[in-house]
Amino acid sequence: MIIGYARVSTKDQKLDAQLDALKTAGAEDVFSDIASGAKSSRPGLDKMKTHLRKGDTLVIQRLDRLGRSMKDLVDWMQWLEDKEVKFKSLDDGIDTSTPGGKLVFHIFGALAEFERNLIRERTRSGLKAARSRGKIGGRKRVLSEKDQKRLKTLYSSGEFTIPELMEQFSCSRATLYKVVKGKY
């Protein structure tokens, strides 16, 4: 079965051209969304995922209709490959049912892996350089040592509710509990 997916970002935009292209490509069922491509969970997209079966073909007009980042697209391609679902992007000329389409798919995967490795390398290098200059990563602590001791004492006394303590110390519930449990 050929299943189509279309997406526009705002209500001002129209799905008509995408829907026409998908129907022309033979899509029997078409799912759509009016939502940003930055959102990984969208109602039409989520529903479409539940309808795809082994041997189906997912058809979209352009890659950016499915996801905005290379990582999103590669994750999608991997998910489709795991489910044994073919993929076709009409405007981009990608069709994983052909040898050339599979090659493009694998090139995308290799580029994404390369990108992840570069990011990892840069992060490690940056952290190492910062440590050598005496910098410690992470956010600044909200509570001083003195405030932490006072918070523990007031919490133990039972005189204040959690929301009262959070307001008094201008901290989140998570921070409050980390301090109380000695994990701050």
Rank of each mutant, 00 (worst) to 15 (best):
M1D: 03
I2E: 12
I3S: 03
I3Q: 14
G4A: 08
G4K: 03
A6K: 10
V8T: 12
V8A: 08
T10D: 07
K11W: 08
D12E: 14
D16E: 15
D16G: 05
L19D: 01
D20T: 13
A21E: 13
A21N: 08
K23P: 00
A27D: 08
D29S: 12
V30N: 01
S32T: 11
D33A: 08
I34D: 03
S36H: 11
G37P: 09
S41F: 06
R42Y: 14
R42I: 10
D46H: 05
M48I: 11
M48F: 09
H51V: 12
L52Q: 09
R53T: 10
K54M: 04
L58V: 04
L58E: 03
V59D: 01
Q61I: 00
R62I: 00
L63G: 07
D64V: 07
R65V: 03
R68Q: 08
S69E: 08
S69V: 08
D72I: 09
D72N: 14
L73I: 15
V74A: 10
V74K: 00
D75W: 03
W76V: 10
M77C: 09
M77K: 09
M77N: 07
W79Q: 10
W79P: 02
L80M: 12
L80I: 12
L80R: 10
D82H: 08
K83A: 15
K83I: 03
K88A: 02
L90H: 04
D92L: 01
G93S: 05
P99C: 01
G101E: 04
V104C: 05
F105W: 04
H106Y: 13
I107P: 00
F108L: 09
A110G: 12
A110Y: 11
L111Q: 00
F114P: 06
E115Q: 14
R116Q: 13
N117H: 00
N117R: 05
N117V: 02
I119G: 03
R120E: 06
E121T: 13
T123D: 02
T123W: 01
S125L: 02
G126V: 15
L127K: 13
L127I: 14
K128D: 14
A129V: 12
R131L: 05
R133D: 06
R133E: 14
G134A: 01
G134Y: 07
K140Y: 00
K140M: 01
R141Q: 13
S144G: 02
E145L: 05
D147P: 01
D147E: 15
Q148V: 09
K152T: 06
K152D: 05
L154S: 04
Y155E: 05
E159D: 12
E159K: 13
T161P: 06
E164T: 14
L165T: 08
Q168D: 03
Q168K: 15
S172E: 11
T175A: 09
Y177G: 05
Y177V: 07
K178Q: 15
V179E: 06
V180L: 07
V180W: 05
K181R: 12
K181H: 12
G182V: 09
